[in-house]
């Protein structure tokens, strides 16, 4: 578990995890460009603006790609989710083995191996 407080002077990576530990899924937003950034960084990738501030994520996204890792110990999926704010993140769909690409998803915060992480649940069928 992270010992970092959100108030301590730490980098964006530690701040992101500290928010998760408090039960909040936060994204960085650069007001001057209107761009959201994930994973959290100290600059907007590609253009370098540093006016990044934390904003709550809508938690909504669309499934971009998915695989199910299989082994004798069991199976679990690895998903890439396009957040409604723009960035893509790796995650898991937790309420089923797999899901159709294109389906809508809702974020939740769960504990994976003792670490708070953003996971998703499917909220509707594939968009027509």
């Amino acid at each position: 578990m992270s010992q970092t407080s959100v108030n301590a002077p730490t980098g964006p990576q530690a701040e992101y995890q500290a928010f998760l530990d408090e039960g909040r899924f936060m994204l960085q937003l650069s007001p001057s460009t209107g761009r959201h950034v994930f994973y959290p960084r100290v600059l907007v990738p590609g253009s370098g603006e540093t006016d990044l501030q934390w904003v709550p994520a809508s938690g909504l996204g669309t499934l971009y790609a998915i695989t199910v890792n299989r082994s004798r110990a069991g199976s679990y999926n690895i998903a890439l989710v396009d957040l409604d704010e723009g960035p893509r993140m790796m995650s898991r769909i937790v309420d089923r083995e797999t899901a159709p690409i294109g389906c809508r998803l809702q974020a939740h915060i769960a504990e994976l191996d003792g670490v708070k992480a953003v996971v998703f649940r499917q909220i509707d069928q594939v968009q027509p």
Binding site: Y39, A65, T67, I101, A117
Partner: peptide
């Protein structure tokens, strides 16, 4: 670090994701 909690298998999960897409 942003992938670690989900335990992708390196490197096959990444290639499988590309194949799925």
């Amino acid at each position: 670090w942003h992938e670690t909690p989900y335990q992708p298998r390196h490197p096959i999960s990444a290639y499988a994701l590309a194949a799925s897409r």
